Simulated assay, not measured.
Amino acid sequence: MARLPGDRTRNPEHLTIGPLDLAARVDEALEVQAIAFGIGAEEVAVRRHIVLRHLECPGARALGATTPTGRLAGFVYGMPNNRGHWWSTVVESYLRAQGNDDWLDGSFVITELHVHPAYQGRGAGRGLITALTDTCGLDRSILSAIDTDSPARRLYRSLGYTDLARQVLFPSAPRPYAVMGAPLPLPRS
């Protein structure tokens, strides 16, 4: 398994989940995302601008999972959904076709959730998403994930997320996505 440079442990019980100044640590977060999601430097540069723009949205919040040495092992961020945001404009027709476009109102969007591979499958992602949604002040949450059977989709299902629309095509994304929604609070394991 991959290890984070300078860290001696890979156990999530040694991680601290708490508020993250994502603007200040955006490059470190995107490094985690690049490793976890398999994206290259060009895509990271594009996503950097997107993350910084998202952080200016009302209600945007981020949490990080840090190691005892202060390294970022994972992060999550999101915000109350806004139908005018690009993501909502893409998914709206897919949700409407399934009778689920009401999920775009009054929902907290999990924009990104990524955990370094050395910490995956051990509770870090679950801890991040539940901690973020617990205090978002809304009754439900939505997100999108690659539409395949994956550890991420299994995690979301275990947290109560169900498919609201499948085979959602985002411009320039090579694979289709599923949009998922869950009532809040998310269940604990």
Score class of each variant (00 low, 15 high):
I142V: 07
D101C: 03
L132I: 14
A45V: 07
D163C: 11
I142E: 00
I129V: 15
P19Q: 13
R153F: 10
L52P: 04
R48D: 02
P117H: 12
L15A: 06
G137W: 12
V90K: 14
A165K: 13
A41S: 08
W103V: 10
R71W: 04
P183V: 01
V44T: 10
G127D: 02
R8F: 04
G74T: 09
R157V: 13
I35M: 00
I50W: 05
Y161E: 02
H49W: 02
P183R: 09
G181D: 11
I39G: 00
A145K: 08
L20R: 04
G40Y: 03
P183I: 00
Q120A: 12
A23P: 04
Y177E: 11
L104T: 05
E31S: 02
S144W: 07
V115E: 04
A62H: 03
Q167D: 10
I17C: 05
M1T: 01
T148L: 15
E42Y: 10
E112A: 11
V115H: 07
N11M: 08
G137D: 13
S150G: 12
G40P: 05
A182R: 00
D163L: 10
N11A: 15
P185N: 08
H54R: 11
Q33P: 00
L143G: 08
P171C: 07
R157W: 13
R157E: 15
G18S: 01
R53G: 04
I17K: 05
L159W: 02
H14M: 00
H116C: 05
P185A: 08
Q33V: 01
P58N: 01
A173L: 12
G38P: 14
E43I: 09
L169P: 00
T162D: 14
A73G: 06
P171M: 09
D27S: 11
G59N: 05
C57S: 08
P176C: 04
A152G: 15
A29Q: 07
D147M: 02
